[in-house]
Design a protein around this nucleic acid. Sequence first.
DNA 1: ATCTGAGCTGAACATGTGTTTAGTATCCTA
DNA 2: TAGGATACTAAACACATGTTCAGCTCAGAT
Lengths: 204, 204
Amino acid sequence: MCSAHDDLTAKAVIRDRALELFAALGPDSVTVRQISTAAGVSPGLVIHHFGSKERLRAAVDAYVASIFDGLFSRVADGELDPVDGASFAEVFLRELPPDSPVSRYLRRLLLSGDPAGTEVFRRWFAASQATADALIARGVLVPGDDPPVRTAFLMVNDLMLLLLRDQLTDVLGVDPLGPEGAARWADEVLAIYRNGLFAREAER
Amino acid sequence: MCSAHDDLTAKAVIRDRALELFAALGPDSVTVRQISTAAGVSPGLVIHHFGSKERLRAAVDAYVASIFDGLFSRVADGELDPVDGASFAEVFLRELPPDSPVSRYLRRLLLSGDPAGTEVFRRWFAASQATADALIARGVLVPGDDPPVRTAFLMVNDLMLLLLRDQLTDVLGVDPLGPEGAARWADEVLAIYRNGLFAREAER
DNA sequence: ATCTGAGCTGAACATGTGTTTAGTATCCTA
DNA sequence: TAGGATACTAAACACATGTTCAGCTCAGAT
């Protein structure tokens, strides 16, 4: 190994810097040269290791997907517990480094319609379904008339925090995934889940 | 006018084709030449009318924002009524042509963190707040302990359908904004809003 | 009739792009 | 210790990009 950055192989460094740049700027606006200088290598090496920019992008997609897969299986194994409204988003934020570009990358993955994003979405949905089933079995949740739709609803409520975090911070004045915002958000969501939203006619 | 396409001015045609291409492929992957051939004009004319590709993008941003502004003010005037769960998304889908690229463009606008997207989000939030206040005043909704957070929650529930429509269609097997899917989605959401989510201990 | 200015084109320009290539150092294996 | 693969670079290549420019057409004012 010629030049040692951190304790990672150069290929991994390239992948990590590409992940950051793709997440921040979008894959299309990022050039191979930007990635190579961010990784401290030559542009040729990026191609040497990944074949092409497009395949580097695919590698980053797969890497991010594998991170989420790891988190999902840890939840399934009971290592991580998404209690209290079944918020996967909060669990993930806790597990990932606070400035991790992964959630921002996921945003691009999902909203751009990329197949890799659809795949992550599918697995997230499956994990949500498993969690919901477990809570129903324990008698905590009621199943509802249309379990898949109910699961999807709960899941997107959760995902939203990740996807629209910046915009929500803007209008609320507080980060809904920060310490204070998360508490306020959870309180309100649980209140709705508990009491519903509509005024009860004649207060029962 | 040299070449008449449809009944629109060439500048408007360029803007419309750019909107479609930007929505479908992302602004960064679309070239001026693609836009110009889609509009049936020369690349130079695109620059002639808009100054630069970047300023064309800004013009499209503003155009989309104005479309949403129009819809918001029609809702405010009572012309459009988002009853039943206050679903703006459904209202918009009904008002826009079925294959309109606007909602897809909005997705890009929000995910890219573009200021224009943030602005649309702000106005959507304001409109949601106004609608919620009206429903509370009529005694339909209960305000909750944290009205801004409650409004944001309801709003993102709604936005989600627009933003994750494709992925939801994938996992549910039905378009949540299509005729059947919308009904199932509304039923389930209203059930939660009405009865909550948790099993009542001892069934009261 | 003539001038003016806007709409518009085709070709060219400068540059940034992804990628290739030739070559060098370094490591692992036999 | 030889030899071949691997990691890596610098330079170049081919091409696509956004943009410019000179000039054309044509409607409307003078």
